[in-house]
């Protein structure tokens, strides 16, 4: 009959009155982000950085400005530059993470905060002192060693420069040794620690099954 559908629609809306609204009252409450979340901040480990400026070269927008001088204390070749200037302008940054992908030394990570609003354009440039003093909670974006270790940047502790590199990651060691290991990473290669619940992320890596053993160590090239 004409109008029954309209009445049903009205009833649905009326029932919504009795349900609890799912509004998150920002800024008192915040939604939890997933570990690979690319925030508006950057985490930079000066101890790992050599001043190669690969991040500046890879940036599609050209917003990273690096000025280096040869280091006075290190030998002339094979060591780090001294960084005078390391500016990242987040005014035009699109947070693509290509700079993070480019860094060969795992010195640059995406941060996981998103509340960098400033009142002036000058405040939108992250300079080297800010990077040095920032809170070192790196996002697990493009850093499988952090993700497989189950690190949660939103709730975990700040990490030191020794703990974040690829060299501590077992798969990297085995790959260097010529083994091929299938993903998902078998459980005996994972670090112990709390797993984070990323079930709401659609393409999250499923939990590895305990029965899978490592693939045969053949086809090594």
């Amino acid at each position: 009959m004409y109008g029954i559908a309209m009445a049903k629609g009205l009833l649905v809306t009326l029932k919504n009155l009795t349900k609890k609204p799912f509004t998150v009252q920002y800024p008192e409450e915040r939604l939890k982000q997933h570990p690979r979340f690319r925030g508006e901040e950057f985490v930079w480990y000066e101890e790992r950085c050599t001043g190669c400026a690969s991040c500046a070269k890879y940036c599609p927008l050209g917003i990273i400005k690096i000025v280096t001088t040869p280091s006075e204390t290190a030998p002339a070749q094979g060591d780090k530059y001294k960084l005078e200037l390391f500016d990242i302008s987040i005014e035009r940054c699109m947070f693509c993470g290509l700079c993070v992908e480019a860094c060969p030394y795992d010195a640059l990570f995406m941060g996981s905060g998103f509340e960098q609003g400033q009142y002036s354009r000058k405040g939108m440039v992250i300079d080297i002192d800010q990077l040095r003093n920032a809170d070192k909670r790196p996002s697990a974006f493009f850093r499988p060693q952090l993700e497989d270790a189950g690190y949660d940047p939103q709730g975990g502790r700040p990490l030191d420069w020794q703990e974040v590199g690829r060299e501590s990651w077992q798969w990297h060691e085995r790959e260097k040794a010529g083994m091929k290991i299938a993903r998902p990473v078998p459980s005996d290669l994972l670090a112990d620690g709390p797993r984070v619940d990323s079930s709401f992320v659609e393409d999250s890596v499923p939990e590895p099954k305990a029965t899978d053993g490592p693939a045969p160590a053949g086809d090594a090239e």
Partner: peptide
């Protein structure tokens, strides 16, 4: 209208 739409 907010409550009808499940929000505040």
């Amino acid at each position: 209208i907010g409550r009808f739409q499940n929000r505040v």
